[in-house]
Design a protein around this nucleic acid. Structure first.
Lengths: 223, 223
DNA sequence: TCCATTCGCAAACGCTGTTCGCAAATGAGC
DNA sequence: GCTCATTTGCGAACAGCGTTTGCGAATGGA
């Protein structure tokens, strides 16, 4: 009965009785994380993770009910990398700082943005970040739904931005660029043609992420 | 030699020589789409799609180089559902209208948001939408990178919102809620506790999607 | 009619997540 | 120190997946 209908965070890691486990959730999570960071998320199969730990795939199910739970644990583990100091008092600055830390973490783990946009599970470490953000906007107006939405948009938008600049598959990007330039050769896409004809923009003046995010956050706060 | 290194949109659908194909890309896409709409995206396996067409899985590879290309075709097919009339002249309004249509389309195809945030392939129908949006901001400042980013954020954010309100897996949502209320019972999460203790907000005053999106779009346009 | 070319299809390959049954290991109670 | 309920480790297996391959059948131009 490994797979309960409770969240994995509510299930006790070790039973007080019987033969003690030889491994821990943290150990398995670390192995999966290393695999994902080096070889991509597809490399995180139960077999590969188990092999990295010197065991069989079936054994992992003593620690985890499903592969999805393992992914949830990986995501939550990255949330431990935040360094959340005391707030400055400027709510927008503090929120943008959280987002900037999020982006730095996502850059260290290129598979993370995709997980944050699809899966939205919060574990012990993620809860600390959520609590911090909720504390930042505690004295602001807005109901629970609005504040949780702020958190979701903050993280989601950061994930979208980071995912765009990482462009996981360079081959797919090239195919896409080929097709768009092909369309620009026709007469049916004048705006696209004009866009691609423009100079390649020698260098972006400054990071659009900060400025866009400032505006979005300010907008969400109702300023 | 079905799998070339060109995008599927650049590969001719039918060869001019030899035995003519019995099916078409559109036919296969329609079958896959129906399967996804009714049984979810996981139901779109090469075997199931093929079975729906009364053939074997291997036969599909005469039309498509990979399953990913089939998914790309499904996504592009949904882009045909946009109704893009002449712009009103108010750029923000027109952009928000596109996003609102996107949300309506995503609601009809619950698997779409997830695809739009992960996969970002543009086909013939998607290109029409892109062209329309680029036309809306043609006379605005900003280089190509900024405008393509605007398009990506517009669609991505809409997908995030829609995905949040669809909450694909109700079981996972319950597990998540259980855990958060559990945390609210401890003393380490005062902001979260306060949030969940608040009244359940009888009814949201108006759709947050419109207002949030207006602000984000305005922010991206530099207003 | 010939023939290059394409298509349909059945079989197979390697991989996946997950389940199951049983032997081994453990600590509590006697 | 032994018993025994309980848990763990693990090998084997299952069903399903995406994809490849080889070959007979179908086609239209020469």
């Amino acid at each position: 009965m490994a797979g309960r209908d409770d969240a994995i965070w509510l299930r006790p890691e070790r039973a007080g009785v019987g033969r003690p486990a030889e491994r821990s959730r943290a150990e398995i999570t670390a192995a999966a994380l290393a695999l994902a960071d080096s070889d991509g998320l597809d490399a995180v199969s139960m077999r590969r993770v188990a092999a990295g730990l010197g065991t069989g795939p079936g054994s992992l199910y003593r620690y985890v009910a499903t592969r999805g739970e393992l992914l949830d644990m990986m995501v939550d583990a990255t949330a431990a990398e935040y360094r959340l100091g005391p707030p400055t008092g400027n709510t927008v600055d503090d929120l943008v700082d959280v987002a900037e830390q999020a982006r730095a973490i996502m850059r260290r783990h290129p598979w993370l943005p995709g997980q944050l946009t699809s899966r939205s599970s919060i574990g012990p470490h993620g809860a600390v970040v959520l609590e911090y953000v909720l504390g930042l906007v505690a004295d602001r107006p807005g109901d629970a739904r609005a504040k949780l939405e702020l958190f979701a948009v903050l993280m989601g938008l950061t994930a979208l931005f980071t995912q765009n600049e990482l462009t996981a598959d360079p081959d797919a990007a090239r195919r896409q660029a080929d097709y768009l330039t092909h369309l620009a050769g026709t007469r049916d896409f004048p705006a696209l043609t004009a866009l691609l004809a423009g100079t390649p923009a020698a260098r972006p003046p400054d990071d659009p992420f900060r400025t866009v995010l400032r505006r979005v956050v300010a907008g969400l706060l109702g300023d």
